[in-house]
Write a protein that binds this DNA or RNA. Structure first.
Lengths: 110, 110
DNA sequence: CAAATTCATCGTAATTTTACGATTAATATG
DNA sequence: CATATTAATCGTAAAATTACGATGAATTTG
């Protein structure tokens, strides 16, 4: 309990859930907003724009990285984060595929 | 702790997070797959297609309903669920707006 | 009306998530 | 080399999530 039975779902379902989970917290959406807007994406700069502590932001960055949506390049003492375009596109396509599937005149039952 | 500070985020960030959260579990994606595919969307039929107990499915349905993505019509003893087209479109647009924002030649920093 | 069906809700347990301060490792700067 | 700066990680606590069986409410059906 408290554990998801990943074994019983399709690759599509798991993939979509993974990307959606990355976007399921406003702080992570806010981080992505910063990365999409800015050139400089030094971790410290992100921390400055968010109402969260450095350690909490670092954790959110780790999750975004785990989902593949961002990557970080070490640059001396600091780390520069940015969108991973390839994976981002994949997320867009996967989510789009699901969300675009309501084209027909809709199910007749409700 | 354990609680998100919703006060400090924009409406866009909260809205996207809300929809993404609804899609952040493979069981809920699977439920939506069923609703998108089927005409008949009786709760019991959904339970039959998922590897989860009736009470667990009911809980997931509740969350999808809370996010606005689905609605349920009582029909005698059973309940017929279906996609809420209006809200679904909103989710699609909100998520699309974020995900489509990587059109430019990408940030130069990484 | 009794029995069956359908589904929501309750109670509970394990796990995960969210958040923060403190510490640590690594690099830069005086 | 001592000191600062940057960011990850650790430890911890509170809360939310996931899951299930049991119970309840509502509606059919016999």
């Amino acid at each position: 309990m408290g554990t998801t039975k990943t074994k019983d779902y399709s690759a599509q379902e798991l993939s979509i859930a993974k990307y959606a989970k990355a976007l399921s917290h406003p702080a992570r959406v806010a981080i992505l907003n910063v990365l999409l807007k800015r050139q400089s994406c030094i971790c410290g700069a992100i921390v400055d724009e968010l109402p969260l502590s450095q350690s909490t932001v670092s954790q959110h960055l780790k999750e975004l990285k785990a989902a593949g949506l961002i990557k970080g390049d070490i640059d001396g003492v600091s780390v520069c984060y940015c969108i991973d375009e390839k994976e981002w596109t994949k997320a867009k396509n996967q989510l789009g595929l699901l969300l675009d599937r309501l084209t027909l005149p809709a199910s007749k039952c409700c």
